[in-house]
Simulated assay, not measured.
Amino acid sequence: MKAVLDSSGAYAARKKKNKFLHNIKRDAWLYALLLLPFAYILIFRYAPIYGVIMAFQDYNIFEGIKGSEWVGLEVFRFIFQQDSFYRALQNTLLLNVLDLVAGFPAPILLAILLHEVRLARFKKITQTVLYLPHFLSWVIIGGMVYLMLSNTGMVNTFLSSLGLEKIEFLSQRTPWLITYITVGVWQNIGWGTIIYLAAMTGINKELYEAAEMDGCTRLRKMWHITLPGIKATINILLILQIGRMVSIGFDRPFVMGNSLVSEYSDVISTFVYRVGISSGDFSQATAVGLFQSVVGLILLVAANYIAKKLGEDGIW
């Protein structure tokens, strides 16, 4: 009996192996196409992880990682004693929270409105116009903002011509924060709608037809059909954005910030640039980056756990 079981197990294993080899041979070109993205991930995502060691060293660019002195957690202690680091962390959290509150619902609302548009030509033109800002670099956008909202810009020149006081859009805290968030929403709102519009295509059309036969208005169909239909997508994107709460891009705060609002525009990415590139302290820059990654991972896992506990779909 044991011999029969062993032979049957060996046969199943051999059959499975042959099937695997058959699939590889059949789809050889498809697997070959995966080599380039795999190589990209290995070279630019996993290989640099080795450099995290610099966060625990007194890194010397001439000695390299292998020759630099090991100092343990001294770099982290030094960072956590700096007021400028806590200011950068506070500003990062503030700007990300404001982006979450103002920027996260905006693409959802825009996608729902575009989904309800019946004129196909008008819908395509509108989508194209809304997507265009995403392809502009922040250097260009920063120049546009300066030309329009500086003290000598178009908006303040127009206000002065009407006898009104100028608004310090780029030199005072509250106007600068409003400008920063508004420009960010404008730049990202069109691109963000792509995901939600794609999710809406998977909603069963018969649900809309049944709702229309029952006399539902467009608002009710949006609330009871469209929103529930994209709820899983909303949950996943919200969890991912929460996981990025301590991370922030470099271009936007660096370009839109200036010396008059540096107390509010100095974020972790500009802090890393200042201490890592300008000052040449690569150990500090690496330590801050590692701190961001660890805290981001904790927030991501916590957000996913809470979503699961509330009965919603998570990432895993």
Results as ranks from 00 to 15, higher is better:
residue 97 V to W: 09
residue 162 L to W: 12
residue 165 E to M: 08
residue 20 F to C: 11
residue 28 A to L: 09
residue 8 S to D: 08
residue 245 M to L: 15
residue 179 T to A: 12
residue 138 W to I: 02
residue 118 R to D: 07
residue 50 Y to G: 08
residue 272 V to R: 00
residue 286 T to R: 01
residue 42 L to T: 11
residue 113 L to V: 11
residue 173 R to D: 13
residue 56 F to I: 04
residue 187 Q to S: 10
residue 302 A to W: 11
residue 196 Y to T: 00
residue 304 N to V: 04
residue 73 L to P: 01
residue 101 V to F: 12
residue 145 V to W: 02
residue 3 A to Q: 13
residue 130 L to C: 03
residue 244 R to Y: 08
residue 301 V to C: 05
residue 316 W to K: 11
residue 226 T to G: 01
residue 69 E to C: 07
residue 194 I to E: 00
residue 3 A to G: 06
residue 208 Y to M: 05
residue 123 K to R: 15
residue 225 I to W: 06
residue 17 K to N: 13
residue 93 L to S: 03
residue 203 I to V: 15
residue 35 L to F: 11
residue 135 F to R: 07
residue 20 F to K: 15
residue 130 L to E: 00
residue 23 N to F: 13
residue 298 I to C: 13
residue 272 V to P: 01
residue 222 M to P: 02
residue 189 I to M: 03
residue 192 G to W: 00
residue 263 E to G: 14
residue 153 G to R: 02
residue 260 L to D: 07
residue 241 Q to E: 10
residue 18 N to A: 15
residue 172 Q to D: 12
residue 201 T to I: 08
residue 133 P to S: 06
residue 272 V to L: 05
residue 151 N to Q: 15
residue 34 L to H: 07
residue 142 G to M: 02
residue 151 N to R: 15
residue 262 S to F: 10
residue 303 A to M: 06
residue 230 I to M: 03
residue 52 V to Y: 14
residue 171 S to I: 05
residue 50 Y to Q: 11
residue 77 R to K: 15
residue 62 F to N: 10
residue 178 I to K: 03
residue 222 M to K: 06
residue 225 I to A: 06
residue 36 L to S: 07
residue 91 N to I: 04
residue 169 F to P: 02
residue 249 G to C: 08
residue 209 E to Q: 13
residue 220 R to H: 10
residue 65 I to W: 04
residue 270 T to F: 08
residue 79 I to Y: 00
residue 278 S to G: 03
residue 23 N to V: 11
residue 312 E to F: 13
residue 237 L to N: 07
residue 1 M to G: 11
residue 205 K to I: 08
residue 85 F to H: 05
residue 54 M to Q: 12
residue 241 Q to T: 13
residue 191 W to N: 01
residue 80 F to M: 11
residue 96 N to D: 09
residue 293 S to E: 04
residue 51 G to N: 14
residue 12 A to G: 09
residue 114 L to S: 00
residue 69 E to R: 14
residue 124 K to A: 03
residue 146 Y to N: 12
residue 238 L to W: 01
residue 64 G to Q: 05
residue 244 R to E: 09
residue 24 I to T: 09
residue 276 G to A: 05
residue 7 S to N: 12
residue 283 S to Y: 05
residue 105 P to S: 06
residue 309 K to I: 08
residue 74 E to Y: 08
residue 89 L to M: 12
residue 197 L to A: 01
residue 307 A to D: 05
residue 232 A to N: 11
residue 297 L to T: 14
residue 71 V to H: 02
residue 94 L to V: 13
residue 85 F to S: 04
residue 121 R to A: 13
residue 72 G to S: 14
residue 188 N to W: 10
residue 141 I to M: 07
